[in-house]
Design a protein around this nucleic acid. Structure first.
Lengths: 168, 168
DNA sequence: ATATATTTTCAATAATTTTTGAAATTTCGG
DNA sequence: CCGAAATTTCAAAAATTATTGAAAATATAT
């Protein structure tokens, strides 16, 4: 397979992959493109390569910057802004985990705290099932939260090293 | 907070939560409803409670069954089918991980295998960056795959037990 | 076997999300 | 400060995804 074709396949699959994880196609594609680009790119480079409009490109680059996955890069002598993606995939994963934890897991845990305090007789089957469900989700959620904190602080070896030894 | 309100909030938040993870709102809501229902429900119960059409209800129940999160339950003396959700949240999480691994992670790893074999001179900066990116994603992906296998086999204590001791 | 209840399908419609592109704003060299 | 280049915004349009509802298929009781 030729490089051009391989790059295209990667970008397009990364985009499709993203849509299964609540990330929009274009954002994932821009990320993929920057991942396989040795040097920083401008907005125009990205527009041209992915065939998308200026507005779309701009919005999604900004979103990637918000997620901490892409950086603005200043190149001396150039007026335009350049963008580059973090290439260390373990850092990328940690950054995504960190953001999703903050944006989704933590708010969900706060909601569950409030819901667990529902009024009503625990002998009522409806109430009991509700409270039990909420508590068990909360319990697992808190465990996940702690585990992810550990992961965020860990080295890449977390995945392959100590953990495996514990179980096998 | 009253039970009715708390249930509604849970169902609606679970639905919103789902949309951030590539799961459609209704499917997540049906799942939430079944999680907090002490007894199995019929399609009609679900339609009424969530105010959704018969077709929509049917499709999403079937999808939940495909994911292994909901079971058909036969109740003697009843003509209609009843549905109930697995209440053990750890089992639910493991089931979701198992399915997503199969549906998404594994196909992605196969794609990366093919892409890594791109033609071209490794001294070319473009080729080098591409191959390096693909290999490092693949490496991490394989580690994740193994770790998730371990998790799928593990008891709930996996999260809170041995793992924590390794790092703290 | 027939009638009736129940489930499933799927084309049409609705809702939501994404994308465009042109106008407004900002940046920066001279 | 001026003017051109670059960036950002956002209402309208397009694309995608979800939902409806009625018809078809299936299952069950009598």
């Amino acid at each position: 397979m030729k490089l051009t074709e391989a790059r295209q396949q990667f970008i397009s699959s990364w985009g499709a992959f993203g849509t299964h994880w609540g990330i929009n196609r274009t954002m994932a594609q821009i990320h993929a493109l920057l991942l396989v680009s040795p040097d920083p790119l401008t907005q125009d480079d990205i527009m041209e390569e992915l065939n998308i409009s200026r507005g779309n490109t701009n919005m999604n680059i900004r979103e990637l910057i918000n997620w901490g996955l892409v950086d603005r890069v200043l190149i001396t002598g150039e007026r335009k802004e350049f963008f580059s993606a973090e290439k260390d995939i373990w850092k990328v994963v940690k950054q995504i985990v960190k953001e999703r934890k903050k944006r989704e897991l933590e708010p969900m845990l706060h909601l569950l705290d409030r819901l667990e305090a529902v009024e009503g007789d625990k002998k009522d089957k409806q109430v009991k099932t509700f409270v039990d469900t909420i508590s068990s989700i909360k319990k697992l959620g808190r465990q996940a939260d702690k585990t992810l904190d550990t992961m965020i602080k860990a080295e890449e070896s977390w995945f392959v090293g100590a953990l495996m030894k514990v179980f096998k």
